[in-house]
Nucleic acid binder design. Structure first.
Lengths: 347, 347
DNA sequence: CATTCACCTGACAACGTTGTCCAGGGCCTA
DNA sequence: TAGGCCCTGGACAACGTTGTCAGGTGAATG
């Protein structure tokens, strides 16, 4: 009953607008706009008056309105699998740095490996009219993105390629990395090597499995079905896989793990096991060097992955119109001990 | 020369608008709006026609325009210190989950512990008219936020309190945690205990130092200046601090570390040291249980921290108008071995 | 003193959406 | 059959900003 002017809704908590600033400074609307945007053509005296009004009212430009008029939001969207996964931290950060260098903000969200949630998130970002998208895809069909891309939303996929559409992608060499890691174990004398990976609907999981199989084949070694376990990265499941592989009549003497989460669980499981078992893990993990033995890993460079993707995105936004392409970054094997353990001497 | 209609700039890459949809469906503008927003008052037949036009054109509502009209952006901003720091991953994720449950998107950025960058980021978020802000502050003066808060931007500080203004905050009990950790070392017989922490301009660093000093005082133990080292978390500096403390004529027999980054470096340094030195670290770190000895830590619950902050934020957005308050969450000491090492028997 | 010109300044429309309000038509009832 | 009501649909303004363009002032020049 005190306030009377409320018409339909309190707009932005009644923030001052350029109109208010103009009225207070006794100038025109456009002059305020000029001052706010540091455009030329304003006398120092006028500028000072406007600036005073701005400070007095606590005015802050409404970028929503600006965006509506200008067409660029200076923001990019990032959809990844899990913000809490340590692998994505440096990637996220690297993308942010590039975005910042281009004056853009980062909007992000987790898909939780759920294709529907990925789509929902991506479309919400498109509705905000982000200028570009960086996606670590959970799904395999990205045709829903076609209208968006055609409408000019630059899109780059990271870590895994796009499904059913032709789009830029920046990947790690999962196949080659896994092949190299497996060959490393073979070179140290192992013949029965297990592979524990992520769910087979995840592209990298399949690639890494492929690399493992390729290396085994190249070494002329058979792969028993019981040596391969794909599924969720939940500790219970992974632990059980380890127990099964090691409890077999002819147990594996080495294990290749498909990603950081699996590696951590396997390290725990092996620590509780009586005989030493060799291990090579995909993805580097913190403190891996301090464990006994140190964990040999196939390291991806998450930061470079992110930076490369973001740079490509902004090149697109700057007008690069060449055909979409894939970049594959090499992985690096870091030997720390666990991958160099020999197989047991007996049998 | 082919395209003639371009007037001032290609708006959003020429995306279809409601007007286009309306024209194609042969209905009025508002009818399209009604369909898009699932408002009542549209015959099924009309709705179908409109929907067809939407699909055919690949129309997607422009939320920028919507926001301009409605006043709520359904997005919240998160400013933290470093997206790549593993401590913030779960926090970030927890906030995202709450935001998602409230239909809001998350825009975030890293301040890199730079107060100016924090302010720049926060104000950019305000210009986007985020509905609320969650801030892990780098600076100590947040008066620049006053106009924003007055204008209705809900704001919650996390991990560290706001400076110079009265605002909601959700904190961990840094003082109590450090005191407890120090007392734990004292209880295991240590009398010369070192403290290596973050820069003294960081609130939690000071609190933890305070907790350390309090526990020492309560135990009637002196604190030699050379036992305390505050500064950046760069490995070189921390490593040097460890070397200095352990190389003194009367070396410390135990160390309390101020955060996860420091802990990791100290663990490395101690691994290279000949005599065992007890260690309690602030913040839990992955694989801490597998090291030898396991690293005893004072664990914060980052996820709860984030969730609590986000819930408070949305309660504010839902109209809660009670006075700002601080919530302090307890920490938990997890004994794993390194904190239970006795001091050397000699002297 | 008149004219030109440069420079400031402000009125106005437009961006795409949603709230308000009114018109028209169909249906029910008296 | 007339009157009234409800339901559907559309015209219009407004949100806060920026681009366009025209007006206005003062100084410099002929």
């Amino acid at each position: 009953m005190a306030d009377t002017t409320r018409h339909h809704e309190p707009r932005y908590g009644n923030r001052p607008t350029m109109k208010d600033v103009a009225a207070r400074a006794g100038v025109g609307l456009k002059t305020v706009s000029r001052v706010v945007n540091a455009e030329p053509g304003v006398t120092p005296d006028t500028e000072r008056r406007v600036q005073e009004a701005i400070d007095a009212l606590g005015f802050r430009r409404n970028d929503s309105a600006r965006v509506l008029r200008k067409g660029r939001t200076a923001s990019i969207g990032l959809v990844l699998e899990d913000l809490a996964d340590p692998f994505y931290g440096p990637l996220n950060r690297a993308i942010e740095e590039v975005a910042r260098a281009h004056g853009a903000l980062l909007i992000n969200g987790s898909s939780a490996e759920d294709p529907d949630r990925e789509q929902e998130l991506v479309l919400a970002l498109c509705a905000r009219r982000v200028d570009g998208l960086i996606i670590i895809p959970a799904g395999h069909d990205h045709r829903y993105l076609e209208p968006e891309i055609k409408a000019g939303v630059a899109t780059v996929f990271v870590d895994r390629p796009a499904g059913q559409i032709d789009a830029d992608a920046v990947l790690s060499d999962s196949f080659g990395g896994a092949r190299g890691g497996t060959a490393h174990l073979v070179a140290h004398g192992h013949r029965r090597i297990g592979f524990i990976g992520d769910q087979p609907r995840i592209h990298t999981a399949v690639e890494r499995l492929g690399g493992y199989r390729a290396a085994m084949a190249e070494a002329g070694l058979p792969v028993d079905d019981s040596w391969v376990s794909l599924g969720t990265t939940e500790p219970e499941r992974v632990h059980e896989a380890v127990v099964t592989m090691l409890g077999a009549p002819e147990p594996v003497t080495a294990i290749l793990t498909g990603n950081n989460r699996v590696t951590v669980t396997v390290v725990r499981a092996l620590a509780a096991h009586d005989r030493p078992v060799a291990l090579v893990g995909f993805d580097d993990i913190e403190l891996a060097d301090l464990l006994d033995p140190g964990v040999t890993v196939i390291a991806q460079d998450a930061a470079t992955l992110g930076r490369t993707a973001a740079e490509r995105l902004f090149r697109r936004l700057d007008g690069a119109a060449d055909a979409p392409s894939q970049v594959v970054l090499p992985t690096r094997l870091i030997a720390r001990g666990s991958g160099e353990l020999p197989p047991p001497a007996d049998r």
